[in-house]
Design a protein around this nucleic acid. Structure first.
Lengths: 222, 222
DNA sequence: AATTGTGAACCTCTTCACAGCT
DNA sequence: AGCTGTGAAGAGGTTCACAATT
C-alpha cells in the first residue's frame, strides 16, 4: 500500500517509522498555531496533549532527528517549527500535477491548504476532450496522452491521481516512466510501483467502511 | 488520532488491529472485482498479490473472524465477499450527514462511491446564511445551530466534518452531545472525543507532507 | 524543580513454518 | 499435491523510567 516511506534514514541511519512522519506533520501544525499566538516555549507534555499522544512519544519522535529541546525548559516554538520544516522538506516549494479534473480533482484545486503549505499546482491533465483546453486556477487542462512530455516540461515533483479506479494503474505506470517519485492517489485501488516511488493513498471508502465496522461491533453480539 | 477502533473484539474477544480492517476493505473491493468477472475461487496468494501483502497476512486477517476457506482449494469468492460484507457492516444502509458544504463537502456529495457502497447522505448542515436553504443532491442545507435536533431527527449514523480547522472541535463536541458515534473528519486538526466515539481523519496535508519528506530524504545527505 | 533524551522493557503486528484438511 | 488455519518466532513501534541538564 505504502511504498518507499519507512525506508528512509535519519541521523543515525535508522529507519524512520511512517507513523513518526505523520506525527511530525501534526506537531508542525500545532507549532505554527502556537507561534501565531506568540507563545515562545512548549513542553513535550503540551505538544502531546494537543495531539492525543504521550510525551515520551513526542520526545522519541524528535530524537531520531536531533536534540531540539533544553532540559528543564522545553522547546523553543519557532526553532522547533523550523527544524521540523526542514525535516519534512517544507522549506521549499513543491510542484504538483493533477491527473483527472473531475469532482475530487476540482475540489483539490480549490483547496487553500495546498497553497498555504508551499505546494503549487503547475499542470493539469485529463483524457476527456470536453475538459482538455479548459482553464482552472489559471492553468489549461492538457491532454493525458502527452503525460510524459508535460510532466518533464513542468518539472513536476508530486502527482495527484484523481481518476477512476480502472484508469489509475495505467496513469501510475506512465508517471513512473516519466520519472515521478511521489504520488498521492485518490483512486480506490492499490497501485503497483517500483520501491523508489512513494505512493500515499487517500481512500475515502476505506475510512468510511472502518466507521461502519466500528458501529457494527459496538452494537453487536453480546 | 484514531479513537474507538482497535478496541473492537472478534469471535475470540481479541482486539482487532486497525490495519486488519483497512485490509479487509481492500480484499472486499478485490472480491467484488473478481465476482464481476464470474471468478468463483481465489487463493490467499492471489488476494495477497493484488493487495501488496503476504498470503500469511491475508489468512491471518480472516482467522480473527472465522475459517472461510477450504484447505487445498482456496476461498469461494462470493461467499468470502458476503462474509467480509457482514464483518464490516456493509450489508445494511448507513445514513450520513455532512457538516460544511464547501469545496470538499460538495465534492463528497457528488462522490459516486458513497451511493454505490450503501452510504447515503440524509442531512446537510452549514452555518453560512448564504448556503442555508440551498439544495444539493435533493437535500436542503440546514442551519448548523440546530445540529442536535437535525441529527436526531435524521437518524444519522455517520457524520462527515468538512469545516475549517478552527470550527471542527466545536462541531465534534456538539455531535457527541447529539449521540453520534462515528465521525469522518476532513478538517486538518485532531479532534478530542470520548472513547466510545470513533473518529477517522482524512488529512490531505499530512499525506502530501509525507511525500515531501520522502522526496527530501531520497535526494539528500550523503 | 522541571523537563529533555534515550536504553530497556513492553506490547502489537507481521511473517514463518507446518499440521491439518480436501 | 495443494492450500488453509494458526501457534510460535520475529520485527517493529510505543511506553517506561531515570540519568542528564538547565
Amino acid at each position: 500500500m505504502i511504498t518507499g516511506l519507512g525506508e528512509m534514514a535519519n541521523r543515525y541511519n535508522q529507519k524512520i517509522a511512517d507513523a513518526t512522519i505523520g506525527r511530525l506533520s501534526r506537531y508542525y501544525r500545532t507549532l505554527k498555531h502556537l507561534e501565531s499566538y506568540d507563545i515562545e516555549t512548549v513542553s513535550s507534555e503540551e505538544l502531546a496533549k494537543r495531539n492525543n499522544v504521550t510525551s515520551a512519544q513526542v520526545r522519541k519522535d524528535f530524537s531520531f532527528f536531533g536534540a531540539f529541546g533544553r532540559r528543564g525548559l522545553g522547546y523553543n516554538v519557532s526553532e522547533l517549527r523550523r527544524q521540523i520544516e526542514k525535516i519534512l522538506g517544507l522549506d521549499q516549494e513543491w510542484h504538483l500535477a493533477l491527473v483527472g479534473v473531475g469532482n475530487i480533482g476540482k475540489a483539490l484545486l480549490n483547496f487553500r491548504q495546498f497553497e498555504e503549505h508551499n505546494f503549487k499546482f503547475r499542470l493539469l491533465l485529463d483524457s476527456d476532450p470536453e475538459k482538455i483546453g479548459k482553464r482552472f486556477i489559471g492553468l489549461e487542462v492538457r491532454n493525458l496522452e502527452n503525460l510524459n512530455e508535460e510532466v518533464r516540461k513542468g518539472h513536476v515533483d508530486i502527482v495527484v491521481i484523481a481518476v477512476p479506479a480502472e484508469a489509475a494503474q495505467k496513469v501510475a505506470d506512465d508517471l513512473v516512466k516519466a520519472g515521478v517519485k511521489a504520488i498521492l492517489n485518490f483512486a480506490p485501488t492499490s497501485l503497483m510501483v517500483p520501491p523508489d516511488v512513494t505512493v500515499r493513498n487517500q481512500n475515502i471508502v476505506i475510512e468510511i467502511e472502518r466507521l461502519s465496522f466500528a458501529l457494527t461491533q459496538a452494537s453487536g453480539k453480546p
